[in-house]
Design a binder for these strands. Structure first.
Length: 272
DNA sequence: CCACTAAGGATGCACAATTA
DNA sequence: TAATTGTGCATCCTTAGTGG
């Protein structure tokens, strides 16, 4: 097993490309995608919030290239990027929440550099929104919010601080697929960063169905890996098609010893 | 078939708790 | 102390059920 180092791999690919521009299909820059350095990384980096030290890149899941990528119809030599690790929370699995939160550090520091500007834009990750201060609205703002709402006006008359929540904006998102060793790939979900909190989530209709089938449970430690197959054409012929961005969620270690057996079961299931 | 209603799903804001 | 994360819940949307 080789620890995958995206930076080192990138350097190797660059070196290869310099020698043999099209010999290594896995290293070919897709014809219709701007190179990663098209993203104004310097500009982004200068505005990045202070990030925690990047976690050491763990080993790739053993069956990733042998089973998962082929099962998804993807090339087995795709670059796979470690995004981050986190502990699954109750809200990640809550049927009413219907979303999976991605740690901000991983999104900004490791996921964002691998996406094109178009993809970043779709996920609301292209620009860093100015942080909106958390504050209670001024009385005149309350009036505006409550305009046309008699009950709200009554509340104010009663000296209550109750107010209506603003209806959230629909953020849309970047189409992604979540992948789990037990559940396989989800349907098309959306990766999006919220304007209000800057939190990044994967959401969508099929999420809860995916969660019900997946191998992780609340309080499990999981790693998040990302991979995406870019379209490659050779002499006008499609060598491989563009795929969705895939986010692989793998349970690793975990604090719950009783879950280790189910983890191995899930792993064995995916292996077999 | 259409209109109405209720229940549950989907979404994202607000804020408390936690962390660095 | 500021930034980040986790949680509660308001709001809108969709769909199933019901009655005319």
């Amino acid at each position: 097993m080789v620890v995958y180092d995206p930076a080192a791999a990138s350097q190797q690919r660059d070196a290869k490309r310099a020698r043999r521009p099209s010999a290594d299909a896995g290293a070919v820059v897709p014809y219709d995608v701007q190179p990663i350095n098209a993203v104004p990384l310097k500009a982004i980096a200068s505005r990045l919030p202070r990030l925690a030290p990047a976690p050491a890149v763990p080993e790739e899941p053993p069956c990733l290239r042998r089973h998962i990528l082929p099962a998804l119809g993807l090339r087995d030599d795709l670059p796979v990027h470690f995004i981050d690790r986190k502990r699954v929370t109750g809200t990640d699995l809550d049927a009413h929440q219907n979303r999976f939160r991605i740690p901000t550090d991983g999104v900004l520091g490791r996921l964002r550099p691998i996406l094109t500007p178009e993809e970043l834009d779709a996920a609301s990750l292209l620009h860093d929104p100015a942080p909106r201060p958390r504050r209670r609205p001024e009385p005149d703002e309350l009036e505006n919010i409550a305009a046309g709402d008699d009950s709200e006006a009554e509340h104010q008359e009663q000296g209550q601080t109750a107010r209506k929540k603003r209806q959230g904006r629909r953020h849309g998102g970047l189409p992604v697929r979540l992948v789990d060793l037990a559940a396989g790939a989800s349907g098309e979900l959306l990766l999006s960063r919220w304007e209000s909190t800057g939190g990044t989530v994967v959401k969508g209709e099929g999420y809860m169905g995916f969660v019900r089938r997946c191998s992780f449970r609340e309080d499990d430690a999981v790693e998040i890996w990302a991979f995406k197959q870019r379209a490659v054409r050779l002499f006008g012929a499609a060598v491989c098609d563009e795929s969705h961005l895939h986010l692989l969620i793998v349970r690793r270690g975990g604090s719950q010893s009783q879950r280790s057996s189910s983890a191995s079961t899930a792993h064995a299931k995916s292996e077999g």
